[in-house]
């Protein structure tokens, strides 16, 4: 079952997007390429902020555009294509979040071993930065994916709750509740970590 069904409200589609959607529905592969050129940077940015891992983010971008010809059937055309794509990317992120978590844990274990053998000031500060980043991402890893997506979209990408509700296909109140719980949990976890 998909995590969320991107159903968008509030028309902000350009005529070019409307034309692209029509061609995507007709199964034109060139249309996927055009959508990629127009929106890949936004999807990549969102995926990186969501998983915190370049390789996993690239896999999400790949899967989003491969799934697009089929997913576009759900697109009702009453919202932006970019927001719809972010919703598709969020749907495909679950597996990649898990793999990014595993990679982070492995890096953490490796860093713990390296700590003993670090000699230079540069290497030590790099290690501290990496460990700090890993701890911060580990806090995010502890959130349920629905809360994580809402937190990244609202706080890191600074989107309004109306926009996020349109992206995730949930009522605005649900988005605010998810954000509230996400922030509360994160504050608790980060306080415990210090």
């Amino acid at each position: 079952m998909p995590l969320m069904a991107p159903a968008l409200t509030g028309s902000n589609d350009t005529p070019a997007d409307t034309d692209l959607v029509t061609r995507l529905r007709a199964g034109e592969r060139a249309a996927v390429e055009e959508v990629y050129v127009a929106h890949h940077a936004a999807i990549r940015g969102f995926a990186r902020r969501l998983v915190g891992d370049t390789a996993a983010a690239e896999d999400i971008v790949h899967e989003t555009f491969v799934a697009l010809p089929r997913a576009v059937r759900r697109f009702r055309g009453d919202g932006s294509l970019r927001a719809f794509l972010i919703g598709v990317a969020a749907n495909h992120s679950r597996r990649h979040i898990r793999s990014a978590m595993r990679r982070r844990r492995a890096t953490e274990r490796l860093a713990a071993r390296e700590e003993v053998s670090v000699r230079t000031v540069d290497a030590t500060s790099q290690l501290i930065n990496r460990q700090l980043a890993n701890r911060l991402w580990a806090a995010l890893d502890a959130l349920p994916i629905e809360q994580r997506v809402v937190f990244v979209l609202c706080e890191a990408e600074q989107r309004t709750s109306v926009e996020v509700a349109a992206i995730v296909g949930a009522p605005e109140g649900t988005v605010r509740t998810r954000l509230f719980h996400a922030k509360r949990k994160l504050r608790e976890m980060l306080e415990d970590a210090t």
């Binding site: 915190g52 700090l132 995010l140 990244v152 922030k183 504050r187």
Partner: peptide
């Protein structure tokens, strides 16, 4: 939370 947001951004 600000450190976390900085890392995410």
């Amino acid at each position: 939370l600000d450190d976390l947001l900085g890392a995410i951004r």
